[in-house]
Design a protein around this nucleic acid. Structure first.
Lengths: 253, 253
DNA sequence: GCGTTAATGTTAAAATTATAACATTTAGTG
DNA sequence: CACTAAATGTTATAATTTTAACATTAACGC
């Protein structure tokens, strides 16, 4: 169940690499076998291709396939992320130049940006860039460099310099840990430089984190809590504002 | 058929923005309406969401949805692009640092790169970056800047400088027009700087174009034909090699 | 060449998804 | 409040996709 099966999958994968989907029917024709054989190839071998309603799609492509359908639970978890971003959205104004941090926290915000007429988004994250690239009314500036798969983002020597050259209005920063004494931290060290540069340059600094990050410390420290002008969070008020209340940052509970 | 319908679509779009797919069933539940209503929303309104075998996916996401299923005709057209890239592949060696140009020509090459153990790809195109980001064994360097949707690529002042700092082994350049007298050209002016920088820096310069580009001149000139060490094309030999034979470039017909 | 096994093809049944028609609810108007 | 029309729900039917079982072909060792 191997040699030719793998060859077929390779062929199909190449066909799909440029994007798009391939109907099972066409895939079978392309490989000159029956649809059933393609089906079997897909179930037997492990591959980056998955079958979605009779169509072959690249499973690893950032957009669509990741197979993790949002179930009811995840949908409610999404609600939390969504509300968080709704609050962050309130700070965004027409004409802003936004720095958008990496991670998944700020993703729900991006599609909301289509309501504006003119915005510029600066980012160093591939997933953010992809989402913004789809918005016709938003200018995208991607800060490139060497790609780090773990955070879907780029790092480079002169990232700080590049950021400082831009007129960033508002920086929306995410974090993996927020602690009153130990400050704000993330997982990956290459994220520190861009985050700090954005914080240094931006006119307004917003920290966007859900309440689960409070009291958590992660390996890479990048800022103190009062480096931020606003903390956007989803706490119930009682717990989170008590926690953050001592800092200088006005809290949007 | 409007207000709430649009709201639902917005909600769904936000849910999908972070990637992944949403089953019609879950989408209905999320919006607290019947599946039929979601179906109707999708057919009535124009939106970036499309329905693929009972699952909602973002249609604009680079990877999967673009709805343009490769039909038989396109599949055969793909064969041509595939063969072209196979020929280009023959020049790639383990450990290479490749400059990969923007456009769709070189896309079929990318998935083939998974056969190598160590490669570095340098690019200024978003679609190329996405394809390479999925390959675990290939290092990705993306040259960022302002995004140009027309070519899915980035442009910036210091792109040339960034490219020259890199030790690029082989430059794989694509083009929209190739003419013996008028040289090699493309559509977009912002592509000129990176292409020229790559040509200037790379140790080996490969022009990868299908035969349909011969005798064509496009607005942005970027190189003479004999700036290249190799021309990889898919001509039958007779026509194309005759055409290109006069140049200095050894022709791989 | 024969027998064996893997690979592929074919077909029918089951499950799922899409479409269409009609019923019901909701929102707005006079 | 009744009337109207838009919006949504429900149900049945059609189309498509998935699964499973069995038939056929190709590959390989002896």
């Amino acid at each position: 169940m191997n040699g030719r099966s793998a060859q077929r999958l390779a062929k199909l994968q190449e066909a799909l690499a440029s994007g798009g989907t391939l109907h099972l029917r066409d895939a079978a024709e392309l490989c000159d076998v029956s649809e059933m054989t393609i089906r079997r190839d897909l179930t037997t071998q492990v591959s980056a291709i998955s079958l979605l309603g009779g169509r072959l799609v690249m499973a690893n492509y950032p957009g669509v396939t990741p197979i993790y359908d949002l179930t009811e639970q995840q949908a409610s978890h999404y609600q939390a992320k969504y509300r968080l971003c709704q609050r962050a959205l309130a700070f965004i104004e027409e004409g802003d130049t936004l720095f958008i941090d990496c991670g998944s926290t700020l993703m729900p915000l991006l599609s909301q940006l289509s309501h504006f007429n003119e915005l510029t988004v600066v980012t160093y994250a591939l997933n953010v860039a992809n989402a913004v690239a789809a918005l016709p009314n938003v200018r995208l500036v991607l800060l490139g460099g060497l790609f780090y798969a773990a955070s879907q983002s780029f790092g480079s020597d002169n990232m700080a310099a590049s950021i400082e050259r831009l007129g960033i209005n508002k920086a929306l920063i995410s974090a993996a840990g927020v602690d009153l004494e130990r400050g704000v931290s993330c997982f990956h060290f290459h994220e520190v430089a861009p985050k700090q540069a954005a914080i240094a340059t931006a006119m307004q600094r917003l920290l966007v984190v859900d309440a689960s990050k409070f009291g958590v410390v992660r390996p890479a420290y990048f800022a103190a809590l009062d480096d931020f002008d606003v903390v956007v969070t989803d706490g119930e008020g009682a717990h989170s504002s008590q926690y953050l209340g001592c800092g200088n940052a006005p809290l949007l509970s």
